[in-house]
Amino acid sequence: MQYLAPQEGAFLDLLTDSGRRCEFVAVRAMTRITLSRYLGIPPAAIPLRRGPWGKPEVAVPGNTVGFNVSHHGGLALLAVAARTQVGIDVEGHRPRRNVERIAARYFAADENMRLGSLPPAEREAAFLRLWTRKEAVVKAAGGRLAQGLHLPVSGDAPVLVHDPAETLPGTWRLHDLEVPAGYVATLAVPSSGTAAAS
Rank of each mutant, 00 (worst) to 15 (best):
T132M: 06
V137E: 04
P180H: 09
H175V: 11
D163K: 02
K139W: 06
G148L: 01
L168G: 07
H150L: 01
E135K: 03
V153W: 00
G182F: 05
G155P: 06
S154V: 01
D156W: 08
P169R: 14
L149K: 01
E178R: 13
G142P: 07
V184Y: 05
E178K: 11
V161H: 05
F127V: 02
Y183T: 08
H175P: 00
P158E: 09
R133T: 06
P158G: 10
E135D: 06
V137A: 04
S154Q: 15
G170K: 05
W172L: 07
E166P: 00
W172Q: 00
F127A: 03
K134P: 02
A157D: 07
L130H: 08
Y183P: 08
H150T: 09
F127G: 06
P152D: 11
L130D: 02
D156Q: 14
P158F: 12
R129H: 01
A157Q: 01
A181L: 14
V138E: 02
E178N: 10
W172Y: 03
A146S: 15
P152M: 08
V137H: 04
H162I: 07
L130Y: 15
S154P: 05
L145P: 12
A185D: 12
V159I: 15
L130C: 07
L168F: 14
R129P: 00
L130N: 03
